[in-house]
Design a protein around this nucleic acid. Sequence first.
DNA 1: GTCTATAGCCAGATAGAC
DNA 2: GTCTATCTGGCTATAGAC
Lengths: 196, 196
Amino acid sequence: MTDSLSAAPGASRPGGKRERLIAAAAETIYAAGVEKTTLADIAAAAGIPLGNVYYYFKTKDALVQAVVEAHLAEARTMLAAVDDAHEAPRERLKALFSALAQQSDLIARYGCPHGSLCQELGKRADGTPAAAELMREPVEWAERQFAAMGRPDARDLAVQVIARYQGTALLTSAFRDPGLMEAEARRVAQWIDALD
Amino acid sequence: MTDSLSAAPGASRPGGKRERLIAAAAETIYAAGVEKTTLADIAAAAGIPLGNVYYYFKTKDALVQAVVEAHLAEARTMLAAVDDAHEAPRERLKALFSALAQQSDLIARYGCPHGSLCQELGKRADGTPAAAELMREPVEWAERQFAAMGRPDARDLAVQVIARYQGTALLTSAFRDPGLMEAEARRVAQWIDALD
DNA sequence: GTCTATAGCCAGATAGAC
DNA sequence: GTCTATCTGGCTATAGAC
């Protein structure tokens, strides 16, 4: 039995072992991919014995799911921060791309973490709907910005801008060249300013 | 010993077992990913006993490498066919995108096979240089077309056009919506016509 | 809640008969 | 060249002491 201050396995206290496991899993999976990452790798990165992982997650898939949800939560936080920092949708869109481009060195090594997860989990038979959310939510956020700019084709523009980022991330990673992402961020900023 | 008409393991005769293995591996890996695909899966898909695979490929990695090279060879054939079919670089670029968009249903299910391979193999420590070629060669081909159009920024435009395709392929797959790729092909055609 | 030990399975790879 | 049988190691997952 656990007292009322202890976290149940499903709960998430910052700094708790569950949180540490998810963070270690996110990093390891980002660097090596879902299938190549073993629970032993994750446990070692988190400084937790292998057997203890199963107290927090019944299966590897459950941990992967938690990683996807952690990425989603982080993405929402970032989009909300951009919303708070800027009023004008144009500035918001540029701020998002600027923030993403600041990760260009990491992207050059491992690609976009959300794109990697979508690619790998998208091949599963079940579809793993949570991974698709990693794309859907940014697209819908961008759609709201373009709509606020009065664009009737807001949805198409939103898909285009996220696709540009994802495609550039893939080439940035394939060529190990962070400059590609930085150049694209500048072009997207110009493109957004030129709209209308 | 083998007589002079039999293929050595390294050679590639169309319809030979080595070719069948590579084709089966390419399909299975496209659908399930490199790490999740087992040699038993590939052998079964090719109708070849598992143990016999090792006569043609010393390791799984060697077979994966052969799959990447088969994709590269196919890509070169396709680009050469586009070169033959059209003289004008503008028409060539549109023809390439049109051909890619015709795969939209497959892409909606499994993404772009080249993009998938780059993403997965790009995480390896060695870099797996052959996978990056799957991006480099189309970019260089597109660069030649833009240069032939007299564009001084041919390289940037080439990176952009391939990135647009790859990013759209990712979203097409995440949303399981072939329409995204078809819409993008139309936009790229307009964009190319509007250049200069 | 935590950790050690290990079960059970399945993958890549090999041996060797044919 | 082909194929069956099998080795070996590593992975997910569990059992059970503490």
